[in-house]
Design a protein around this nucleic acid. Structure first.
Length: 426
RNA sequence: GUGACUAUAGUGUAAUGGCAGCACAGGACCCUGUGAAGGUCUUAGUACGGGUUCAAAUCCCGUUAGCCACCCCA
């Protein structure tokens, strides 16, 4: 038989206990924050009709063209996709369940795994974890500002307080067309000077030329048309308001006229939050989002003006590690139960339950018989108090309470045990 | 998808074509009812498949994976 080494599929990773503490910290923090901000949780299926994404994200985006995991159902009728992002499914749920009949806006949050078939790199996985939130059914600029503030503040709660918000407006369905025309005209007039990627983008997705990393393209674009000059009055006012709110809230942001985003459904406000991710220099995008007033129309209904954001949890965890964020460790047990002999072993199980009822976190090593090995383990676990029960004690309903720091021991009746342990834990 | 680099016990590393070693971690013991030090023993590895060679962890080719820069994006 061929020797097969089983491992995680390309670009997918296990989250081991040593990293779970960070993920748990993220989950606890966001749950608290979203509860405070008045958001309600939603879970949508991992699988959705593939067309939900191709329509909303855009047919010509890489996400849809190359990166979706698509599978056919047994009947062969439907093409289902592993969800590559969270906004379209939530809009689908909103429309499907008539959430527009409730007082608006609807504020929802989520976290879970997402899938994109990309070539993996650090901080880029084929299965990755995001949390995000959406405010559906509200067109006001203050919602955009609040979206940014919430995302920014959550990062602060997680110990990432040196992040920077980049913000831009990409106009709405009317004025963006005008700008796109002007941009394409400009690109064509200089087509011999732009890089070959930008020439391709001119045809497929001209806005993407704006964030080309090529130095020469960047220079050329400085003289090109700027979207801000093409925004219609409403979009201009909207952007101005958002910026005013952000200034009021003292959020560190920069207006980046070259910021665009990869998903077609965005209108007006788009933003990214960047921060150094590793201990070396170099910033990464931790979160991004924006307004998507036209998404619902693409899905076949009237416009539901909405705004939202999502963050990559793996990237946040790297950033937390680089900052040596505290408070990520799971609560360690304080008490260790050790036993000698078969009778004591049985009593040990009962003692364990006694402690649980009293809310005292305990651990044990019941499978080890030598007291030495048990104490050694307790020592490695940084245990404060060890309860020792042997044959002699078991017969008299007594236990020994040992203080691991001082080495002092006391024999107490099993009925007094919880009280005595609590006294010593103070 | 394109290009570069890398791959040795669980982890971190050594061996420059000639016996695969060390540290940490894990297990057992020295000590059959008392942890931390020390000591002894032990588990476990050249990613996979070919080739060159008397001899390959080492050189060559392919595959896989990781990582980095693009593409793109959280």
């Amino acid at each position: 038989m061929a020797k097969i080494k089983f491992q995680t599929p390309t670009g997918m990773h296990d989250i081991l206990p040593q990293d779970q503490v960070y993920f748990q910290k993220v989950y606890k923090t966001i749950e608290k924050a979203f509860d405070f901000y008045g958001f309600e949780k939603i879970d949508t299926p991992i699988l959705e009709n593939a067309e939900l994404f191709s329509r909303s994200i855009g047919m010509n985006t890489d996400i849809v063209e190359k990166e979706m995991y698509i599978l056919r159902t047994k009947e062969g009728k439907d093409a289902l996709a592993l969800r590559p992002e969270g906004t379209a499914p939530i809009m689908r749920a909103y429309l499907e369940h008539g959430l527009n009949t409730y007082p608006q806006p609807i504020k929802l949050w989520y976290h879970g795994p997402f899938f994109r078939h990309e070539k993996p790199q650090a901080g880029r996985y084929r299965q990755f974890w995001q949390y995000g939130f959406e405010v559906l059914g509200d067109k006001e600029a203050i919602v955009d500002a609040q979206t940014i503030v919430i995302m920014y503040n959550i990062l602060c709660d997680l110990g990432i307080n040196d992040s920077i918000v980049k913000i831009n407006s990409i106009g709405d369905e009317n004025c963006r067309g005008e700008y796109r025309k002007a941009l394409v005209k400009f690109l064509r007039s200089k087509k011999n000077e732009f890089c070959k990627d930008c020439l391709r983008r001119t045809k497929t997705n001209p806005l993407r030329v704006l964030d080309c990393k090529d130095e020469k393209c960047k220079e050329l674009m400085n003289e090109g048309p700027q979207i801000i000059d093409y925004l219609c009055e409403d979009c201009k006012t909207h952007l101005k308001s958002v910026l005013e709110y952000l200034e009021e809230l003292k959020i560190p942001f920069t207006l980046d006229p070259f910021l665009v985003r990869g998903l077609d459904y965005y209108t007006r406000t788009v933003f990214e939050i960047e921060a150094p991710v590793t201990e070396e220099e170099g910033t990464g995008v931790l979160a991004g989002g924006g307004r998507y007033d036209i998404l619902s129309k693409v899905l076949g209904k009237a416009n539901i003006p909405s705004c939202g954001a999502a963050a990559g949890i793996e990237r946040i965890v790297s950033a937390m590690k680089a900052r040596k964020v505290e408070g990520v460790y799971a609560s360690m047990p304080k008490v260790f139960i050790s036993q000698i002999g078969p009778l004591a072993k049985k009593k040990g199980l009962l003692i364990f339950e006694e402690l649980r009822k009293a809310g005292i976190k305990a651990t044990e090593s019941f499978s080890k018989d030598s007291l030495k090995a048990q104490l050694s383990r307790a020592n490695k676990l940084n245990i404060n108090i060890v309860i020792i029960i042997g044959q002699k004690e078991a017969l008299r309903d007594m236990v020994i309470i040992r203080d691991m720091e001082t080495g002092k021991q006391a024999e107490v009746n099993i009925k007094e045990m919880v009280k005595e342990v609590k006294k010593r834990l103070k």
